[in-house]
Design a binder for these strands. Structure first.
Length: 323
DNA sequence: AAAGAAAGCAACCGCTTTCTC
DNA sequence: GGAGAAAGCGGTTGCTTTCTT
């Protein structure tokens, strides 16, 4: 038996709101408030809408001081900073941007910001792949085997991109943002001040715990190149650096975010990139990023696979802008 | 100019969390 | 403390607009 519907679907209008409906809802709420019950509200005012729909319409469009579109660079940076630290918790992110709604930010991220990041990344990787291809071709010419290319060789030419795997894409973006966050003079900051509620603190603490539990975290603790991470995860330095026992047969959802955190840790471990530009545009500075194979450090160790710093980040020098 | 593709965005769906009794 | 209802939230869908060929 499923959950009871919140309203009578048959008698409820769907789709775009008409100006009349908007006016009715707005006028009522401005005069009486929501009355603390969205479900009952549409019936009170004679709207054939679901209560949830009314709530959404009010919160996203009708309430005062709502801004639409025209995201500033500063807002971009705030969104990215927060995404690094808390992920897709759009309501919290929206809370830091007055006049913005979670839906708006979510749409903006999914349709523009993310592509902005990935577009830069893809371009650089294509150029890099082309360079590799050329050098391999020259090598093969020398060995007179130009007509045959082993699959393994093909993988070398285009190792990790493009990918249709959503988790890989997610990890790509996260890694990229984390790199940017570590660059001196960048505009991203870990927004410590948003960790206001016990729940938020708990969330960050759990992320920190997960980080410390990975083998990769050991190298972060000892890494001399990484100086910003402790600031990004306040309290992290006080946590035990011993990797704790973490069952790897967990349901991925139960350790939500872990795969990304490994990606972050891998990246931090390998990153020595710096920039001197510090432009707020940020994206212009994004250089080549070769995403490591989708295997955590821990798993990599277990399987005897090469570590990121050995392979996937071999071209990390691309992060260093030309002098 | 027209058709198809891509992008943008409003709205919906359903799961989770919080509140109330 | 438990159950049910309501609110909150993030992912997804589908329509509209814009761009490209």
């Amino acid at each position: 038996m499923g959950r009871a519907p919140c309203c009578d679907k048959a008698n409820v209008k769907k789709g775009p709101w008409s100006p009349e409906e908007d006016a009715t809802l707005k006028a009522y709420i401005e005069q009486h408030g929501t009355g603390g019950n969205w479900i009952a509200l549409p019936q009170k005012i004679g709207l054939k809408r679901c209560g949830k729909s009314c709530r959404l319409r009010w919160l996203n469009y009708l309430r005062p001081n709502i801004k639409h579109g025209g995201f500033s660079e500063e807002e971009d940076n705030i969104i990215c900073s927060l995404y690094i630290s808390i992920g897709s918790r759009w309501s919290i992110i929206a809370g830091q941007l007055p006049g913005r709604t979670d839906n708006d930010i979510k749409n903006y991220w999914n349709t523009r910001l993310k592509k902005k990041l990935l577009g830069k990344q893809r371009k650089e990787q294509q150029a890099q792949a082309a360079r590799r291809c050329n050098s391999l071709k020259q090598e093969m010419k020398r060995e007179s085997c130009e007509t045959f290319m082993a699959p393994a060789l093909m993988n070398q030419i285009s190792p990790y991109w493009p990918t249709d795997h959503p988790l890989e894409e997610e990890a790509n973006i996260r890694s990229l943002l984390m790199k940017l966050a570590q660059q001196p003079n960048n505009n991203f900051q870990y927004p410590i001040n948003i960790i206001s509620s016990p729940q938020d603190q708990l969330y960050v603490n759990s992320m920190s715990s997960m980080l410390t539990s990975s083998a990769a975290m050991n190298s972060i603790h000892t890494s001399t190149s990484c100086t910003q991470l402790p600031n990004m995860f306040p309290g992290l330095e006080n946590l035990p650096s011993e990797p704790c026992e973490l069952g790897y047969d967990h349901n991925p959802q139960q350790i939500d975010g872990l795969e990304e955190l490994y990606g972050m840790a891998d990246m931090v471990n390998a990153s020595t990139g710096t920039t001197s530009s510090g432009e707020s545009t940020g994206w212009g500075d994004i250089s080549s990023l070769v995403y490591p194979p989708f295997v955590s450090d821990y798993e990599g160790c277990q399987q005897g696979l090469p570590q990121p710093q050995d392979s996937a980040f071999e071209d990390l020098s691309y992060f260093v802008p030309p002098q």
